[in-house]
Design a protein around this nucleic acid. Structure first.
Lengths: 212, 212
DNA sequence: GTCTATAAATGGATAGAC
DNA sequence: GTCTATCCATTTATAGAC
């Protein structure tokens, strides 16, 4: 693996663990046991590393969003989709934990992130429409619009809120809880099937929490 | 007004406008046209200013939360309550915009903020229970728990998400939209009355947006 | 490509005069 | 209480040897 890629990997780990504000370019070099000069040969500091990491993230997320609406034929498919999206966010959580300040300080990222938000919005809507078409979901148009926005908010911030309340929460737990909350948003618009799916979700959740 | 208070006022304005990471202690001194030495006489830098601002915020918020559940006898009271809470958050929005990084860097604040989250949770639950008692809301216990959490997430992050998507969104607009989203969470558990209240909210929203 | 050494820039902090 | 002057620490960034 070449140095450029090693820098990106080390940076991602450090940023996720310590937070974006806490890590300097020199810290990343130290963690890799290379010299700051070497790091600056590959990247002009954090200013270039962070956009590079974001591009990796966006590329992977776009693939997830685009593959999402294929073969969506049950409520379970819906929560598997949510699970995958949240896992991807988890892998780049340093970014979501400091959204505003990062978008301020790396201006190239602001338009890109807005574009990604809209792609997420669209994917959420497609999936919900799928559930409507499959007759799992019964909802009028106005409430569908707000349901899309509620979903988007949950995808964007639930992991954050959990990390604030429980530092060092295991990824699995945080993601499970977030999926559960997201699914619950749709439950009142589903009939019996929705409520049953939710119960199943919760049982799974408790099973995963117990062994810890 | 004494210098200590003037520093806090100027700091709050600057932090809300420029963001916490962008403002140094010297910036605050410059904005007030006092010397850095003078500022350091009153506060040992941002390290003391930010917790002082937080304490002001928490005190005001606790008063709001405690007065919230008095005289709650209609759905409209509910959204007035949401409005007041969000206005208070807006006044100290620099804090919410960088939650994780601020709680990391000012460790005294983390336990205080968790305590405040729990106070909010409790206030939300009290209000929803009130609506149940008044027979406006019909919901089982499991879903009530998740509804409380959904409300908490909206109160905490809706303003943020809007500011990311529309830089310089007017306070009124952002707060209205957030109230609307929060109320919508309860709508499926209300009957006709809830849907009507929502329609009223939306009409109000559009009226307030139109003149701009 | 990688290192050492060092410079430049910024923010945080204090001493001492007024 | 307030100012000027100055210092220290950290982060950012580059030059030049290997």
């Amino acid at each position: 693996m070449n140095t450029k890629q090693r820098i990106l990997n080390a940076a991602l780990t450090l940023l996720n663990e310590e937070g974006e504000t806490a890590i300097s370019a020199v810290d990343i070099a130290n963690a890799l046991e290379i010299s700051p000069g070497n790091l600056y040969y590959h990247f002009k500091g954090k200013e270039e590393i962070i956009p590079a990491l974001y591009d990796d993230f966006e590329e992977e997320m776009q693939i997830i969003l685009q593959s999402g609406h294929k073969d969506m034929r049950s409520i379970e498919d819906q929560w598997i989709f949510a699970y995958i999206v949240l896992e991807e966010i988890w892998d780049f959580r340093f970014f979501y934990r400091n959204l505003d300040s990062i978008l301020d300080r790396y201006p190239v990222l602001a338009p890109k992130f807005k574009r990604l938000l809209n792609a997420k919005r669209k994917a959420i809507r497609t999936n919900l429409n799928n559930l409507i078409r499959l007759d799992y979901l019964h909802i009028d148009q106005v409430l569908l619009n707000t349901l899309v926005e509620q979903n988007l908010l949950c995808f964007t911030y639930w992991l954050n809120l959990q990390e604030i309340e429980k530092r060092d929460i295991p990824a699995q737990t945080a993601i499970h809880q977030s999926v559960f909350q997201i699914m619950t948003l749709s439950v009142p618009y589903m009939g019996e099937a929705g409520f049953n799916a939710l119960q199943g979700m919760q049982a799974l959740l408790e099973k995963n929490l117990a062994p810890k």
